[in-house]
Computed example of a mutant assay.
Amino acid sequence: MTAIFNPTGPAPLAPPPRRAPEPAATPAPVVPVGPVGPVLELPGTPAAALVPVTRDGRAVGAFVLAGGRVRYRSVPDPDQVLAAAAGAVAVALLATAVAVVGRRRPPAIGAVTMGPGGWVSLRGTRAPALRPATPRPWWARVLRARRLVAER
């Protein structure tokens, strides 16, 4: 576009007068568009604001604007918390089952068979291990009880 300035031509028209801006009655509410919600002003002496973030209609976090810093705070997903708790319970039950099976003692003697004439045969088995000496119970000490031992 080319402009030709002719000082001898007619006088330029005065610009139209400007209107005073109309005062807004109330601000229109901010409608969230997309995953970021409206800015929420938080009460308090240090000015703070909160911007929620959603995904598929669920809150996933929020941006917190306070003290000249912006921080993102995530919201724990209840489905993930429930899945993690179920996994922890399953691992604890499995570990308990392994510990119980591992602590089971083998029988003190081997196979017991019935011999001729109705007597019990323990042939080919080891003698059971002796039990370790256990301390006397408190009631035996109080009563000054003695062990019953057959004398030979």
Rank of each mutant, 00 (worst) to 15 (best):
T2K: 11
G87K: 08
L148T: 09
P76I: 07
S74V: 02
R144Q: 07
R104T: 07
P10N: 09
G124N: 11
E22T: 15
R131M: 15
I109L: 12
T45C: 02
V91D: 10
L65F: 09
A111I: 12
D79C: 00
T26H: 13
L13Y: 06
R71K: 12
R141G: 09
P107T: 10
R126T: 14
P106H: 08
E151Y: 05
S74K: 03
E22P: 01
V39Q: 04
A133V: 10
A59G: 15
A111Y: 05
E22M: 13
A95S: 11
P52T: 01
R18N: 14
L143R: 10
E151G: 12
L122N: 08
L42S: 05
L42C: 04
P107W: 11
R104I: 09
P137M: 06
P23V: 11
V98C: 10
A86E: 15
V142Y: 07
P76T: 15
T45F: 11
P32Y: 02
A86P: 00
L94G: 13
V31E: 10
N6I: 04
P116S: 15
W119K: 12
A92E: 08
L50C: 08
T96P: 00
R131F: 12
A14H: 08
G118R: 02
P12C: 12
L94H: 00
G110K: 05
T134I: 09
A11E: 14
T96D: 13
P16T: 09
G118V: 04
A84H: 04
Y72A: 06
L42Y: 04
V98I: 14
V30L: 14
A140Q: 11
A150D: 12
V33D: 11
R58N: 13
A145P: 00
A84E: 14
G67M: 00
W119Q: 14
R126P: 10
L82A: 15
L13R: 14
R71Q: 09
A145F: 01
V53D: 00
D56T: 01
I4W: 06
Y72Q: 01
P15E: 11
V120S: 02
P10V: 09
A145C: 02
P12T: 11
V149G: 02
A90N: 08
P27M: 14
A133F: 04
A140Y: 06
Y72R: 05
T113G: 04
A145W: 07
R19W: 07
M1P: 01
A108M: 05
T45K: 11
P15N: 12
R55Y: 11
T54D: 12
A99I: 04
A88E: 14
P16M: 13
L82H: 07
G68H: 01
L122I: 13
R131C: 03
R141F: 01
R105Q: 10
R146I: 01
A84F: 01
